[in-house]
């Protein structure tokens, strides 16, 4: 079974997630502070870390940064009540392989955890919306790696379906491709999101918050 460590400063929430994931994945530990989280993750080496974005002492970003020094292959799934684009984009760019909101159901969460542990990316509808917005036409800068700065038509199509609330297998059926291909598209988008050199991404996120 997939092993998971939960990092969140709210003990009630940790207990709740533990209960919801019971029997679906193997929760081997949890931590409430950045310091504890880093120690715990490095020690237990879980398949996936469920990471809260907002925590005292630097938040999820700090955990990502410190763990990456010791265990670069560690996989993270960001789990947050925040849907401020700058938080979401920042945590994804720092290396989290997915972002879901805390209102997600236990089963869906377990599914997302397994998918992350398989090396895929997990986008919630909201994150898909952010990404589409960030990569929207007109914002593309010049003299950069074209491939990294644009989404392909297919990737855009997949993201739109995620934003519209479709599951991966439904998307696969609608687009006449395999679920694996859908996952490949999402992973490609994740890679672009993380590697894209466009400073606009961060600026966009802040601007969006200003006008949203």
């Amino acid at each position: 079974m997939t092993t998971v460590v939960i990092v969140d400063d709210h003990s009630l929430f940790r207990a709740g997630v533990r209960a919801e994931l019971d029997g679906l994945v193997d929760v081997i530990g949890d931590a409430a502070t950045v310091e504890d989280a880093v120690k715990c993750v490095v020690e237990l080496e879980p398949d996936v870390v469920l990471l809260d974005v907002h925590m005292p002492g630097g938040g999820g970003l700090e955990v990502l940064r410190q763990v990456a020094e010791k265990r670069p292959a560690q996989r993270f799934l960001a789990l947050s009540v925040s849907d401020a684009p700058e938080d979401v984009i920042a945590i994804i760019r720092a290396g989290a392989r997915g972002y879901v909101t805390k209102t997600i159901s236990g089963e869906e969460l377990a599914d997302a955890v397994r998918r992350i542990s398989d090396g895929d990316a997990v986008f919630s509808p909201r994150l898909a919306g952010f990404v589409l917005d960030a990569f929207a036409a007109g914002a593309a800068p010049v003299e950069v790696d074209e491939e990294l700065e644009q989404l392909t038509t297919r990737e855009r199509e997949v993201l739109r379906h995620i934003a519209r609330g479709y599951l991966y297998k439904e998307i696969a059926a609608r687009l006449n491709i395999s679920t694996k291909t859908v996952e490949a598209h999402v992973s490609a988008v994740l890679r672009k999101l993380q590697l894209s050199s466009r400073h606009e991404l961060s600026r966009w996120a802040v601007q969006r918050r200003l006008v949203d």
């Binding site: 509808p125 036409a137 739109r160 934003a163 609330g165």
Partner: peptide, 21 residues
């Protein structure tokens, strides 16, 4: 089950999808 409302607006085109399960 939750309903999804997705809006994509550009200068020349607006699309809205309302999806239920």
């Amino acid at each position: 089950e939750p309903i999804s409302l997705y809006v994509e607006a550009t200068e020349e085109r607006v699309e809205v999808f309302v999806r239920d399960r």
